[in-house]
């Protein structure tokens, strides 16, 4: 058996993941390299923010403190946010955002497929919707890896350097704390460690085809699930939460 607190924490972590990445992608709105790409990034951001709302809505139902989805999203500070670090890193140049999106999309696909089989009906239902959208996301980011990696000398150089900069943050996607491990045993959460080979199969051949070098696994950083974040999250939350902090309860 699992306890409600573990399920709440887990759901909130997935909600934070979706919101923080959605917010980062949305920063490209009106800054993308060309119009169609601007529209595509806005669409992907919207999918993630929609996903965040479903997870926050469910977390609010489970919350012993009775907070609603807005309170959970707008009124928690950095140390209470549980998102993975890779998702909060600044958007960087287009190569950096593309590298992150590809590595995260390749994780989201097998993760959500596995979550569809969760014994928790609400998590399974959210995953059942999100996984269909992630298939579109993965195709887009894979195509960009091929275009930039096997593109000009400049695009190749930028993408390779982005991969090296971000690689150490990917390992956190495959780690689970004790509480999450309990949910894995209860058939509620997918086993992240077991997803690694699926992720490899979606990542490595694409990097090769794109003439990119897979960076070595020589360093890794984690802490997001424990609320230990990079200095970047505070800036992101400042922008995200400004209205609710300054005008509490504001609605439109």
């Amino acid at each position: 058996m699992h306890d409600t607190q573990a399920l709440f924490d887990y759901t909130l972590g997935l909600a934070d993941d979706s919101l923080v990445l959605g917010q980062r992608i949305s920063e490209w709105c009106s800054h993308a390299p060309f119009l169609e790409e601007d529209v595509a990034l806005a669409n992907v951001a919207l999918d993630y923010i929609g996903r965040a709302r479903m997870f926050f809505g469910y977390a609010a139902e489970l919350d012993g403190a009775g907070r609603d989805e807005d309170a959970l999203a707008y009124l928690r500070d950095c140390r209470q946010y549980r998102n993975l670090l890779i998702l909060e890193l600044p958007r960087g140049d287009f190569a950096f955002s593309t590298a992150r999106q590809f590595l995260v999309d390749a994780f989201q696909l097998p993760f959500l497929e596995a979550l569809c089989a969760s014994r928790d009906p609400q998590l399974a239902a959210i995953a059942g919707k999100a996984v269909k959208e992630s298939r579109y996301h993965y195709r887009r980011s894979r195509d960009w890896i091929l275009r930039l990696g096997d593109g000009t000398a400049e695009s190749h150089r930028r993408l390779q350097s982005a991969l090296e900069e971000i690689w150490g943050y990917t390992h956190e996607m495959f780690r689970a704390g004790a509480a999450e491990q309990g949910l894995v045993e209860a058939g509620i959460a997918p086993d992240r460690i077991a997803l690694r080979s699926r992720w490899d199969a979606l990542v490595t051949p694409v990097l090769e085809e794109a003439t990119l070098t897979r960076p070595p696994d020589t360093w890794s950083v984690d802490g997001g699930r424990d609320g230990i974040h990079t200095e970047h999250l505070g800036h992101l939350l400042a922008e995200l939460q400004f209205l609710q902090r300054s005008y509490p309860g504001l609605q439109w």
């Binding site: 595509a40 919207l46 579109y136």
Partner: peptide, 12 residues
């Protein structure tokens, strides 16, 4: 032209 169009449900 793009798998992501004018709304979430459309491609171009």
């Amino acid at each position: 032209i793009s798998e992501f169009g004018s709304t979430a449900c459309k491609s171009l």
